[in-house]
């Protein structure tokens, strides 16, 4: 199985643990993810102004690269990239007037009609690979590991690009269950972590991120599974600031969903780049006996 792949900026640097674990896992699953040639930053957020088409140029250019490379489907791992590319694609497909303006503006590029399907690794696994097939490949089921999947915003909203039911998603639960984990549902799994407000309103962002962790802990989660490097920053990396500031704040191991996939597929721990997680991540995997002590060094 071959698929076009868009990494995005953060996955090449700060979130190598997301990309490298995913690519290692896909290889074992027999999926060849072909990175787009000459891809550019998608812009991270979709422009919400009707009169602002210029910010659609970047994501549309990436979609054209996918089309030119002969891909019908474009795989993303970062949920912000997914959202931005999928919404840009939706416009090119369904808004003839805007699509025409954009195509005319990009006169050095071939016209684009929205015919590439943008997917995220989670719906790719559900719809194209299949949970049953994935289950057969699991070598180290995450049995007894209580994981709280955190959806955040951009995989579910707006509805035009939602991977699942906007208010009652189950796709992440299904993914984690396929890996053998004990999945913990908690109400704040779809509430925003504060996103880019870590720049504009860092204290408020810390507070609402902490509320999410507290909620997951209160419902019995031992770890969070994430899909987005910005969520990972707010809910993972910034835990150092929460502990000591908020009553009852505790360490909560945070993983990218692809790291847990790689562990469940029995891949060597090096594939997961746990050095980019907080130390509690590796700690709990050892404690649960899901990775071998020796190779973890």
């Amino acid at each position: 199985m071959k698929i076009g792949y868009y990494p995005g900026c953060t996955l090449k640097t700060k979130a190598r643990n997301l990309e490298e674990s995913a690519l290692a896992a896909l290889k074992v699953l027999g999926v060849e993810a072909v990175e787009l040639p000459r891809w550019n930053c998608c812009g991270a957020v979709y422009s919400l102004a009707d009169d602002d088409l210029i910010h659609l140029i970047a994501p549309v250019r990436d979609l054209i690269r996918a089309r030119e490379s002969g891909h019908d489907t474009l795989l993303t791992l970062c949920s912000m990239c997914y959202n931005t590319l999928a919404r840009a694609n939706d416009i090119m497909k369904n808004d003839a007037e805007k699509a025409k303006t954009i195509n005319m503006f990009m006169d050095e590029e071939p016209d684009y009609d929205g015919s590439v399907k943008v997917v995220h690794m989670l719906d790719f696994m559900r719809d194209q690979y299949g949970w049953d097939k994935l289950k057969e490949k699991v070598k180290v089921p995450l049995n007894g590991f209580k994981v709280g999947p955190y959806y955040g915003c951009t995989l579910l909203r707006p509805k035009e690009v939602a991977l699942d039911k906007v208010d009652r998603p189950i796709i992440f639960r299904e993914f984690m269950e396929t890996l053998g984990a004990e999945v913990i549902d908690y109400p704040m799994a779809t509430q925003c972590c504060g996103s880019y407000q870590v720049l504009g309103a860092p204290d408020i962002t810390l507070k609402i991120s902490h509320d999410i962790i507290r909620d997951a802990l209160a419902h019995g989660a031992e770890a969070l599974a994430l899909t987005c490097p910005l969520c990972d920053f707010n809910l993972g990396k910034r835990q150092d600031l929460m502990i000591g500031k908020f009553d009852g704040a505790k360490d909560m191991p945070a993983f990218y969903f692809t790291q847990l996939l790689a562990v469940a597929l029995g891949l060597p721990v090096e594939a997961c780049h746990f050095d980019l997680n907080r130390s509690s991540a590796l700690g709990i995997l050892k404690q649960k006996g899901l990775i071998k002590e020796a190779s973890a060094a």
Binding site: K14, C41, S195, Y196
Partner: peptide, 28 residues
């Protein structure tokens, strides 16, 4: 501008993922 990129301290932004900067600057 709502936030001034040149006023951000290096230690505040060194660890930020790129998507945080790109999206924050796009919005603000």
């Amino acid at each position: 501008n709502h936030i001034e990129p040149s006023n951000l301290q290096p230690e505040e932004i060194i660890d930020l993922p790129q998507i945080a900067m790109v999206s924050g600057f796009r919005k603000m």
